[in-house]
Design a protein around this nucleic acid. Structure first.
Lengths: 204, 204
DNA sequence: AGCTGTGAACATATTCACAGCC
DNA sequence: GGCTGTGAATATGTTCACAGCT
């Protein structure tokens, strides 16, 4: 499945869910409009999931949601740890959107002893020393990294060593990871800088 | 300038800054390695800024930083408002990375009267009613949207009406905006879902 | 010798346009 | 009639490979 397609699947899922229970069937044109995508693109993307549309009618909304969730691996419930309980880390710990889409935050970790034991959204912040055992014990395969940039790489190494296979990195620091580890970088300042570019010259 | 290039410029800037003051000259190969990009790609990207490299030598690091900042419109200091002072909104208000790259958070706004007047990182949360005047008065052209999904579109409309030209949207809701408005969507759950896809089938 | 800048080749992604089916 | 699924056409992005400069 093309990378570009994979990155749009969550969007489709979101759009379908936002439609509410009113529509039982959806056309590629409708979905394309709400997702801001070309309808042929939608059809091609969905065709990678197998042909579940009906010509002359459209796609069954609920069935399509299920197909999308299956394709994205959201049938299983993933356990996630958050490492770095600063402003962003604790905000993410409290963020309800993760649970809603099949992710379960099972632990928060921080290197700062002053933070240990503090409660954040029902979790007590634990020491980095607990990370490895917890990851293995709870079969955690994803981590959200919200440490300062300077610590990010060494924490990532530690996580990978402990068996983590996917990392969502919010630290403004590019991680070097082995090929078999999935890593996505979300950089807030970068996003603003891109907006700045387009705005600076009126190039909207 | 190609969209793909624009989205890499902030990365180059970050890498150059992370190198510290040790290196005064950088080759496309070095930059490519730290940025995780092909070196020909780096050279092509940088060539859009004009030819500032020296054959046989490389690029002057500080000069290149300046060129990048100029291209990204980071010479001017942009004023930004944050609308929606929930967990994420207040975390972003406290995030130092914005200031560091030329953005200045000038105000926080929330629709919830219970939050009004509360201090967050030196700012007192203001009412939505103050938005329009503040935006005009302080010549604010960028907004960070951290409201619940349900409110996002109407807040966006209000912002645009008030003169905002770029929106960074964290609400999990796709905004309909006029062509001349720059809008970027950052969806945290989406990012995890993409990781989930690659992890689910061991397709790293 | 070493590195940039760039045309040409390749790869990926999007869109068009229409045959095929309900 | 209306909508899907998809080959063919186009557009965008990346990489190669090397001429050209210092």
């Amino acid at each position: 499945m093309p990378k570009a397609t994979v990155e749009r699947l969550p969007l489709y899922l979101q759009c379908l869910q936002a439609m509410g229970d009113v529509e039982s069937t959806v056309s590629s044109e409708e979905l394309a409009n709400t997702a801001g995508v070309n309808s042929a693109n939608v059809r091609k993307d969905l065709s990678y999931l197998g042909s579940h549309g009906v010509r002359g009618v459209g796609y069954n909304r609920l069935e399509l949601c299920t197909q999308l969730r299956r394709a994205l691996g959201l049938i299983e419930k993933w356990s996630v740890v958050i490492v770095g309980v600063g402003n962003l880390g604790s905000a993410l710990a409290k963020y309800r959107g993760f649970d809603a889409s099949g992710f379960n935050v099972v632990g928060l970790y921080d290197a700062d002893p002053a933070k240990l034991g503090h409660p954040v959204d029902g979790h007590y912040v634990k020491s980095m020393d607990d990370l490895e055992l917890d990851i293995k014990e709870h079969d955690v395969s994803m981590a959200i990294l919200t440490t300062p940039a300077a610590a990010a790489q060494s924490v990532a190494d530690l996580l990978i060593e402990a068996g983590i296979r996917s990392i969502l990195n919010f630290a403004p620091s590019l991680l070097k990871v082995p090929d078999e580890i999935n890593c996505r970088q979300v950089d807030l300042a970068t996003e603003l800088q891109i907006l700045s570019y387009y705005q600076a010259a009126g190039r909207a």
